[in-house]
């Protein structure tokens, strides 16, 4: 079996009395895209920082690229790429100098670096903006520059913390395209996200995190099959509170969830269930039949929604 690039056993991170990461176990295998899905505060970023050797662990075992990140910080970081949640580009430097200077931090020789910077500017579609100041870039461009910067040392493992948060759909799709391209070229991706669409798009395997613990692990398809049904019927109600309606749909689906404004009916055949709802004389303002998503998995596992 191939050695995992990241191996965590009973990993713990505490800040004072607060337990941010609470005894989690997982392996990340070479070449895969591995995701941490969960709401804000679930412990995703703390886990990422421990893997990235910028935060010492409070307990348990952690190996990154075969070694302890706490003992071999510089050596581990030399082989990682990190895209932080918040852009921390060097605003005093131009776009291309950001890449150049970052490469120098990795000890890349100047001549080699100049060529690398040109390649990365192309990859990030920022060649025309090479001389501009970072603050003049749009949010999507800054994000692409941050990703390009994380690749300057040709990392084996790329850590992406909420890579597309705050971006418009077009910018997000462009980023996903770049990440798919990297994955095809053999880079292992580790992604945290609170967007289920992103997790479904990017991740081969993922863990659902909630309150510092791992609630479930598997591929997006496996998780949906294991925890929810194939399809979902969403009933939206206008005046009455949806929870009050919950008893009226009893027996129509193997599992139902009542949210503030709608009922979710988990079923194998959405159209059949929708017809049964109509036969019962219920009059929701809107009926939507859709495929189940990771959002439903999260709701099922935690009783809460992923994004409010």
């Amino acid at each position: 079996m191939t050695e995992p690039l990241v191996m965590a056993r009973a990993l713990v991170k505490r800040f004072g009395n607060f337990v941010a990461v609470d005894h989690i176990d997982f392996d990340v295998l070479p070449g895969e895209a591995f995701g941490f899905l969960g709401p804000n505060g679930a412990g995703k970023s703390s886990t990422m920082r421990m893997i990235g050797a910028t935060s010492p662990r409070s307990g348990g075992e952690l190996r990154v690229l075969g070694v302890e990140p706490d003992d071999y910080g510089p050596q581990v970081r030399a082989r990682l790429g990190v895209v932080p949640q918040e852009d921390n580009l060097d605003t005093e430097l131009s776009v291309s100098d950001n890449l150049y200077v970052y490469g120098r931090y990795f000890g890349i020789p100047r001549r080699q670096l100049r060529q690398r910077v040109a390649e990365l500017l192309d990859f990030a579609q920022l060649a025309e903006r090479a001389g501009d100041r970072v603050n003049d870039l749009s949010g999507g461009m800054k994000r692409r520059l941050t990703i390009a910067r994380s690749l300057v040392n040709q990392p084996e493992l790329l850590l992406l913390d909420e890579p597309t948060t705050g971006l418009d759909p077009q910018a997000r799709h462009l980023l996903w395209d770049r990440l798919h391209r990297l994955k095809r070229s053999g880079v292992t991706l580790l992604v945290t996200t609170h967007y289920m669409e992103e997790a479904e798009q990017l991740c081969d395997r993922l863990v659902v995190m909630d309150r510092g613990r791992i609630a479930a692990m598997g591929s997006p398809r496996q998780l949906i099959e294991r925890y929810v049904s194939r399809e979902v019927v969403e009933l939206r109600f206008d005046d009455e509170e949806a929870p009050a309606m919950a008893s009226l749909v009893n027996g129509l689906a193997p599992h139902t969830e009542a949210l503030a404004d709608r009922l979710l009916l988990y079923t194998e055949d959405g159209d059949l269930t929708a017809q049964a709802v109509a036969r019962r004389g219920l009059k929701p303002t809107n009926v939507l039949v859709r495929r189940a998503s990771l959002e439903d998995v999260f709701l099922r596992l935690t009783g809460r929604q992923l994004v409010d």
Binding site: A78, R79, G107, L120, D122, F123, Q154, P155
Partner: peptide, 18 residues
């Protein structure tokens, strides 16, 4: 467009003072 094609095995050694 060129892909950066990052591959395994590029370990950048940087001495302490560097």
């Amino acid at each position: 467009m060129s892909s950066p094609a990052p591959r395994v095995g590029v370990t950048v050694a940087s001495p302490r003072f560097a």
